[in-house]
Design a binder for these strands. Structure first.
Length: 779
RNA sequence: GGAUCCAUAGCUCAGCGGUAGAGCGUUCGCUUCACAUGCGAAAGGUGGGAGGAUCAACACCUCCUGGGUCCACCA
């Protein structure tokens, strides 16, 4: 007997337990049947649930539908360590405690982040269960579990052996605050109000928004077709430091921008880097990784004392103060022609919003062209279908066809280290940064130059930060001291390296240190379908390639395209047959949900209040393919009202109603009409789910259940049953039709609102004793 | 600069080559049993603008206007 009003909270917990205990989410491999597989887009282990996760509803609908069709259905859950995201959050936490990552050696920092994430990882799982997701928890994987990590390293080695990995000194997007490089995809762009400065370079004048970089200029370039510059001097002069540089011509320079002359700074600008490469220009380093200017390179050594004094004023300043100071000096020397307010877009770190500094730092790259080609062909040949096709295939092709080599190294600790080792004896110029442990904290200076005691988890008390090349440090500190307190290495481009860790292949030495760069998170998640399923060879053989990948379209390039590339590379087969893309959840005014706007709807609060089913239905009902999902509390209330219509439960109490049979005697015109409607409904719901039109499928179900079945048929049958002139037999026929239609509607609704439907099913006299989630889909 | 999507009821959005749909909101009425988290009814749209192919368009094509989003080396 059910409560009169539906109490979702109690019911949901009970029902989920019923499913879990029955192991219904764990498929049984049956080679005679075709499996249905979905890999859950792995949530960040550290993230609490948000509406994006609630949208996994779409996957649950597919999983439940296919399970009811009798297909061995695997929906595989997991969690991602989310390298940069997580380290960024953790560092913010450290900052609140007046600490920074520079206070810890990498091993300690890693362990601290590990512990921090571990707490949230289990919360995450519970939250997914609350929404009723039929995930196979027995196959749960975490991106940092040893087996998964080992497979990632294997992929790296395989790529290396196939000549697809290289260590390159190229210009990369560097965030001086996060202290790491990013791939091109991880840079956001913001419009800024800045200035553009016109500067006097002797024979020519140039325009720049970044005057502080003039010290690293090595040339000026003009467009070869620019008539203004047909007869220009071949030499320009960098103001302030009076260094002569050549004037080149290059088609990349736009004639009509600024003065038409571009200063070439190969170390700090992507275009300049490219021009520099073409012309064999030198790269002058003037900025450290912490974003402070530095004039200690050899270019500046031979300058006059007067000039050196100018540079001293800028030395060690951060970019913006350095810019101000440079402009001030330029003004003083009358080299600033004009300064104009200028609106332009700048690249910023997608995590912390700091302006990205393009810098030349050796990084690990994957050659992507050979991987992209088969990934493009697979979609062209229809081996993987993208839904909705029209809109997103083009995006996929555009991205893969224009792809550039992928920087997979990150200068953070939170992630697997790149499995490459450097021999210190063969590479004396490797710069080492490590913390030396000390027994006398009072004599020790902290990272900010202040005496400081650092304590954490009793790992160490007090430490001293040491930096320098191995050449400089080798006689002062033991290898073990360096190794155990290591923060990071700065390895010159020409250093030798190897994949074996035991001893140096050149000198047989054993003072080897592993690369301190870690993998881009997407390098791990790009192999996720392969690596998770490979945990069990039988699983891989049966469930790979997976059936559907469902995700928000915005990570199509980040994730989907990379899974395609790596999946095909590793297995020769596409990782999924269909990519289904859904849209993002927006508020009732169509605006993106964000904390600052205060329009965030929290899925857990909502499901506590109205039930998970109501939330699920609100997320899919009437939503067009890949269009934004406008969600409001009002809509959820509406859906809750629907879920609460557990019609006719009371009527059947204590009655022995015969089971409906086709063409049973006594069927009326109304009965036949309803039965026909049910048939059409069943067909349409099935058709729409197959076509990924969940919005339509749920809408027609809603319409039928409420307005056709409940409002009309049920209302009429109520009158009929109360009517004493009608025979008992006739009433029983009506009731069996009612029950038949009702049970079928429950089945059809189950993928969308699994909890209520299962609860009613459990309380209903029926032929089939197994739970609703494994009962056969109506035909 | 390139690409792409959107414009339909007060709001948020579906759908469709052949008499305009839903949810929420609004108005009026009903309501001792499946459900007030309800039932019945009603009001409300010359489908952004202009043109074109069609027997016929809100739907197809072109252009315009206004928004969204993505990509790109804007010094």
């Amino acid at each position: 007997m059910l409560d009169k009003t539906y109490q979702p909270k109690e019911v949901e917990e009970k029902i989920y337990k019923l499913w879990e205990d029955g192991k219904y989410f764990t498929p049984v491999i049956d080679k005679k049947k075709r499996p249905f597989t979905i890999i859950l887009p792995l949530p960040n282990a550290n993230d609490p649930m948000h509406m994006g996760h609630a949208l996994f509803t779409v996957e649950d609908i597919m999983a439940r539908y296919h399970r009811m069709l009798g297909e061995p259905t695997l929906w595989l859950p997991g969690a991602d360590h989310a390298g940069i995201e997580t380290q960024f959050v953790f560092e913010k936490k450290l900052a609140k405690e007046d600490k920074s990552r520079f206070d810890f050696d990498r091993k300690t920092l890693y362990q601290m982040i590990w512990n921090y994430v571990e707490k949230n990882r289990s919360i995450n799982r519970g939250q997914l269960k609350k929404l009723g997701f039929s995930l196979d928890w027995s196959r749960y994987h975490y991106s940092l579990e040893p087996e998964i990590m080992e497979r990632v390293l294997e992929t790296f080695r395989k790529l290396y052996q196939d000549g697809l990995i290289y260590r390159g000194e190229r210009i990369v997007n560097f965030c001086t605050k996060c202290g790491t490089a990013f791939s091109d995809l991880e840079v956001d762009y913001q419009e800024r109000d800045d200035f553009i400065y016109y500067l006097d370079y002797g024979a020519i004048s140039i325009a720049t928004t970044r005057p502080e970089t003039i010290f690293a200029d090595v040339a000026v370039a003009v467009n070869p077709k620019d008539k203004k510059y047909l007869k220009v001097e071949k030499t320009a002069v960098i103001p302030l430091i009076n260094i002569a540089i050549p004037v080149l011509s290059d088609a990349l320079v736009q004639k009509d921008f600024g003065t038409g002359a571009l200063k070439i700074t190969p170390g700090y600008d992507p275009v300049d880097f490219e021009i520099g490469q073409k012309n064999g220009l030198e790269i002058i380093p003037i900025m450290k990784r912490n974003g402070r200017l530095d004039f200690t390179s050899k270019r500046f050594a031979s300058l006059s004392q007067e000039i050196k004094d100018k540079l001293t004023q800028i030395q060690n300043l951060k970019v913006y103060p350095a810019r101000e100071k440079t402009v001030e000096l330029l003004e003083k020397e009358k080299k600033l022609i004009k300064k104009i307010p200028y609106k332009h877009t700048v690249g910023v770190c997608y995590r912390c919003g700091t302006v990205i500094e393009p810098m030349v730092i050796p990084q690990w790259f994957v050659k992507t062209k050979p991987l992209a080609k088969p990934a493009i062909e697979a979609v062209e040949r229809g081996l993987t279908k993208i839904v909705p096709k029209k809109r997103f295939e083009k995006m996929y092709f555009d991205w893969l066809k224009n792809i550039r080599d992928w920087n997979i190294s990150r200068q953070i600790v939170w992630g697997p280290q790149i499995p490459v080792w450097y021999c210190l004896d063969c590479n004396h110029n490797i710069e080492l940064n490590f913390l030396r442990r000390s027994c006398h904290p009072e004599f020790v200076s902290g990272s900010r130059g202040m005496p400081k005691q650092v304590r954490h988890d009793n790992v160490y008390i007090g430490s001293e930060k040491i930096s320098g090349t191995y050449q400089e440090l080798r006689n002062k500190y033991s290898f073990e001291e360096i190794r155990s307190g290591l923060q990071n290495l700065v390895v010159p481009q020409d250093s030798s390296y190897q994949l074996a860790s035991d001893k140096c292949e050149k000198c047989q030495g054993t003072k080897l240190l592993q690369e301190t760069d870690t993998f881009d998170t997407w390098f791990l998640s790009g192999q996720w379908p392969v690596n998770t399923l490979k945990s069990n060879p039988a699983d891989f053989a049966y469930f790979y390639p997976t059936s559907v990948l469902d995700t928000l379209w915005d990570i199509l390039p980040f994730w989907v395209a990379r899974m395609m590339m790596l999946g095909i590379y590793l297995t020769g087969k596409v990782p999924f047959k269909t990519v289904h893309l859904h849209a993002r959840v927006v508020d009732k005014l169509g605006q993106k949900m964000s904390k600052s706007k205060g329009n965030v709807i929290d899925p857990l609060t909502i499901s506590e209040k109205y039930g998970a089913d109501a939330l699920r239905l609100a997320l899919v009902l009437g939503v067009g393919p890949a269009s934004d999902i406008s969600l409001s509390e009002e809509k959820i209330v509406g859906m809750r009202n629907f879920c609460n219509k557990r019609f006719l439960l009371l009527n059947l109490e204590g009655k022995s109603v015969p089971f409906y049979k086709e063409k049973m005697p006594g069927l009326t015109k109304e009965d036949l009409k309803l039965l026909k409607s049910l048939k059409i409904l069943t067909k349409n719901v099935t058709k729409n789910i197959d076509a990924y039109k969940f919005g339509k499928a749920s809408e027609i179900l809603y319409q039928f259940a409420w307005h056709e079945f409940a409002d009309i048929y049920l209302e009429n049958s109520k009158l009929k049953i109360q009517n004493s002139k009608i025979s008992e037999e006739e009433k029983l026929v009506t009731l069996s039709v009612l029950r038949h239609v009702y049970l079928n509607v429950l089945k059809l609704l189950h993928p969308f609102i699994p909890f209520v439907t299962e609860e009613i099913w459990q309380n209903f006299p029926r032929k089939n004793n197994s739970p609703l989630l494994v009962s056969p889909w109506p035909k």
